[in-house]
């Protein structure tokens, strides 16, 4: 199967106030078309930095990345035509209405006013926001904002959808709605690359996972493979949970990760 995302030895180094920081240190990724790929890691592990490099928002210090077959450094504009992006904390212009925002996004992807209006209607229906489409986003709940952000990331029917912590801060009902929508979007053929701190979410949604810690990958596989690997390595007599896999991979203890990784039940 063709690869939707292919990264080789991705490195991001920058100079911060405290000196040089190497946020990502040689990450290799291979995500197949049509997959839902989960990217896990504690805060500051390099998840968002990796996503920002893959989505052309951040320069790559060294290494290479191809998304939907396009080199993101050599041809960022073509890459942007093929990806959809919904970053941490829904990036929305709250002074606009939901419909205006989606239409604006469609216009930025070269649709005519009529095409943009039709696409907005279709997407607002998909994320169940038709009734509030003409209200200012300022009055939307967190869940509505996330769904609208998703809709705006889908205007151009991207090949690959990047979601950075799409359900952080949502209540369980809103989280479930977002999960349903992601599954529907994936069924239409869109590859999804999502970062999350919620291990239950990764377990439910993702075909394969990678775990990053300290800027390097410390585990990769399907949820079942990762659990089976841990069971074998440690001779466990029970089926380990994904959070146990995570703890083993990152060398953390439950006390140490308190506040960094959360398990949620939607």
């Amino acid at each position: 199967m063709a690869l939707a995302i292919e990264a080789e030895q991705l490195v991001k180094r920058y100079t911060g106030r405290g000196g040089d920081v190497e946020a990502v240190r040689g990450v290799d990724l291979r995500v197949e078309e049509g997959e839902v790929f989960g990217f896990l890691g504690p805060n500051g592990a390099g998840k968002s930095t990796t996503v920002r490099m893959l989505t052309t928002l951040m320069t790559i210090t060294s290494g290479s990345a191809r998304v939907a077959g396009v080199d993101v450094t050599a041809d960022p504009d073509t890459a942007r035509q093929r990806i959809g992006v919904a970053l941490q904390e829904a990036g929305l212009d709250v002074r606009q209405t939901g419909r205006e925002l989606v239409m604006l996004q469609a216009r930025l992807f070269d649709m005519s006013r009529e095409q943009a209006a039709a696409r907005a209607e279709e997407l607002l229906e998909l994320v169940d926001l038709v009734e509030s489409a003409d209200r200012r986003i300022k009055g939307y709940s967190g869940g509505m904002k996330r769904r609208l952000d998703l809709a705006s990331a889908l205007v151009h029917e991207p090949d690959v959808l990047f979601l950075d912590e799409p359900t952080t801060g949502l209540d369980p009902a809103s989280r479930l709605t977002v999960w349903d929508e992601l599954q529907r979007i994936n069924e239409r053929g869109t590859t999804i690359f999502l970062t999350t701190q919620y291990l239950e979410e990764a377990d439910q949604l993702c075909d394969r996972l990678a775990i990053i810690d300290g800027g390097v990958l410390v585990g990769e596989g399907t949820p079942a493979e990762l659990k089976a690997g841990l069971r074998q390595r440690h001779g466990l007599t029970y089926e380990p949970t994904l959070d146990e896999v995570f703890l083993a991979a990152t060398g953390r203890t439950r006390e140490r990760v308190a506040g960094e990784v959360q398990e949620v039940q939607a």
């Binding site: 989505t55 052309t56 928002l57 504009d77 073509t78 942007r80 035509q81 990806i83 992006v85 970053l87 941490q88 904390e89 829904a90 990036g91 929305l92 212009d93 709250v94 996004q105 930025l108 992807f109 070269d110 705006s152």
Partner: peptide
């Protein structure tokens, strides 16, 4: 405001 709220990145991630 766009930068702080994240909308600026949304624009930068589009082919604009």
């Amino acid at each position: 405001e766009d930068i702080e709220g994240g909308y600026f990145d949304k624009l930068r991630a589009a082919p604009v």
